[in-house]
Design a protein around this nucleic acid. Structure first.
Lengths: 110, 110
DNA sequence: CAACTAATCAACTAAACAGTAGATTAGTCC
DNA sequence: GGACTAATCTACTGTTTAGTTGATTAGTTG
């Protein structure tokens, strides 16, 4: 299924989505959000990044449709738009796991 | 499952993998390879990119473990290392599809 | 060996982008 | 209104990298 070749514009859109996930800082943010919705400040604290920096990353993620935005009073709450992002990560991790077979070990921390 | 937080180094590795897919040119190459293994020149023709450029992109993809390399005589044949990459694309496309619901239409060409 | 082809390498240019610091806006509380 | 806080915006800097050009290497054929 889906053996048809994607249109160039669609390919570009997919690339943009992948690019949004191509930054460790943004993946850290996504991981933090997995624990529930957070404010920008909370995400900055959890990741150790600057507030302005986190805000920019969140705009990328929101533009790519990976997070939702909810404003309430002084705070802006961000949350995951869906869990399928981690399905992506799991596929990547599956590939990584089979790659490290013959190399060193990199294990997930608990 | 896999609710554990990934180690920072692992996150970085995943980000590198996503980055390898974050370029339209590389996605086009991957799509072309879906039809079977190709030489660098064939990929350059199919995508309209320069040979040296394609060669560099192939190094990225090979470094990320997405393609295999086989040298035979004057030619170097590249092939997909697995189909799960397109599972990634399908997830992204699924997200895109639900996003365009209320917007314009972007359809895959045949 | 000489001529040729396929792929990679090396150096460069231009554009994209992560991170930072300071200004600015939106909202709350006195 | 004035003081304060949270988030975003606006340059700016440094790094990365896509794409190009020309040289170089590996392999073939005469």
């Amino acid at each position: 299924m889906a053996k048809t070749r994607m249109a160039p514009e669609l390919v570009a859109l997919v690339a943009v989505r992948f690019r949004a996930l191509a930054e460790p800082a943004r993946l850290e943010i996504m991981q933090t959000l997995r624990g529930g919705e957070c404010t920008v400040g909370e995400l900055a604290d959890a990741t150790g990044l600057g507030v302005a920096n986190v805000s920019k990353h969140l705009q990328s993620l929101h533009g790519a449709g990976f997070v939702t935005r909810r404003k309430e009073g002084l705070h802006v709450y961000y949350a995951l738009a869906g869990d399928d992002v981690f399905a992506l990560c799991d596929i990547i991790c599956g590939r990584l796991a089979s790659e490290v077979k013959t190399r060193g070990r990199i294990v997930a921390s608990r």
